[in-house]
Simulated scan of single mutants.
Amino acid sequence: MLIILSLILYSSKVKIKTLKTSLSYEINTNKQLEISTKILKLSIIELQTNVNDLNKTINTLVVGTKPIANTLKTGEKEVYLTFDDGPSDNTSKVLEILKDNNVNATFFVNGHPGYEDIYKQIINQGNVIGNHTYSHDYKTAYSSISNYNQDVNKLNSFLEGIGIPRPTLMRFPGGSNNTISNNYGGKDIMNKLTSEEIKKGYQYIDWNVSSGDAEKMTESKDIIIDNVMRGSKGMKSIVILFHDSNPKTTTAQALPIIIKNLKERGYVFKTLSINSPIIHFK
């Protein structure tokens, strides 16, 4: 009888040990499953965060670079007059002509202390200001992305100091496809800058019609008129490049005739905005 009881006790101990082992295994399995579940949840959260960040980046790039849907009415043609490198004494003449002809323009300005009243007049007259860097010095601006941003920010601070909000529009000195920048920042500097400035919230604008007034210190008035009228022929949406620095007196002289001719061709005059049709060389 004692032997039988011993065997039963032994068998019970074995069963208890087996049960404990199974229970321990199940507990460990559950813990591992719980840990795995937590890891999976964290992975899903991290993945969702990455997806959200990626969507934000894509939205920034797409909104910043794709041409806005054409809002032109049937048969309508639009023209954007743009002036670089001012303001100067010459800008006052340009502003007077614009006012007399009831049209507006976009001015891609540099930093010119002493012309604070002209900057303000540009805005007060219903025109738009864009950033063209403070210095317009290729070596200063294009030696690095950091230097370019410093030059841009210097102009922003200058404008804000006289009550003009930070521009959202930008034009690179020489245009986005200039090659002189290669001498200072390397062959890829403009590719990097165009991407960088869009990420910062700017829209850079090039042009599709050039007045040619930068070909000489002071180009012939008739040549400027001819360049614009030939360059815009057959086009529905044009962004014209002019300059309003002091030597460009013939640009101001040509402007009334250009405005008159474009009006006769049926063009509607507009100012650029972040939502305007985009002209990019790069």
Rank of each mutant, 00 (worst) to 15 (best):
S210V: 06
T179D: 05
T194V: 15
G201L: 08
I257N: 15
H243D: 02
Y202Q: 04
I238A: 03
Y202I: 05
M190N: 13
T218H: 08
M190L: 11
S181V: 00
K260E: 13
P247N: 11
D206R: 05
A254S: 15
G186E: 09
A252P: 06
S232L: 00
R230M: 02
I189C: 08
S195G: 14
E197L: 15
E219S: 14
M235G: 04
G234W: 02
L262V: 03
V228L: 03
L193W: 02
K263Y: 01
S237C: 10
T249I: 12
N208R: 12
K192V: 14
N227K: 10
D188T: 15
A252K: 11
K221C: 08
S220I: 01
D213P: 09
Q253E: 15
H243F: 00
N208V: 06
P256K: 05
D213M: 07
I240S: 11
M229L: 15
L255T: 03
L262W: 03
N178R: 12
W207S: 04
I180K: 04
N182I: 00
G231P: 09
N183T: 12
T250G: 09
K233W: 02
K192L: 14
N191S: 14
S195H: 07
A252Q: 13
I189A: 03
K248T: 10
E264K: 14
K233F: 05
K187P: 00
D222G: 05
K248V: 06
V239M: 04
G186V: 09
S245P: 04
I240L: 00
M229C: 00
R230V: 05
G185H: 01
N178G: 06
M217A: 04
K216M: 07
E219M: 10
N191K: 15
S210H: 04
N261I: 01
I180H: 01
I225Y: 02
K199S: 07
D206P: 03
K187C: 02
F242A: 01
I257P: 00
R230I: 02
S195L: 12
E196A: 12
D226L: 12
D226M: 08
D188M: 12
P256M: 03
K260L: 13
A214I: 06
T250C: 04
P256Q: 11
L241F: 00
I224S: 07
D213V: 09
K216A: 13
I189T: 11
G231C: 02
L262S: 02
N191P: 00
T179V: 09
Y202N: 04
V228S: 09
D213H: 11
M235L: 06
Y184G: 04
K199H: 04
N182C: 08
T251S: 14
I198V: 15
D244T: 13
A254M: 05
K216N: 14
S232I: 01
L241T: 05
G186F: 08
I240W: 00
G231T: 10
V209W: 01
T250S: 13
P256C: 10
A254L: 09
W207P: 01
N261G: 10
E219D: 01
Q203F: 03
Q203M: 11
A214D: 13
A214E: 04
K221W: 07
S210A: 13
N208D: 13
D222R: 07
K263E: 04
G186H: 09
L241R: 05
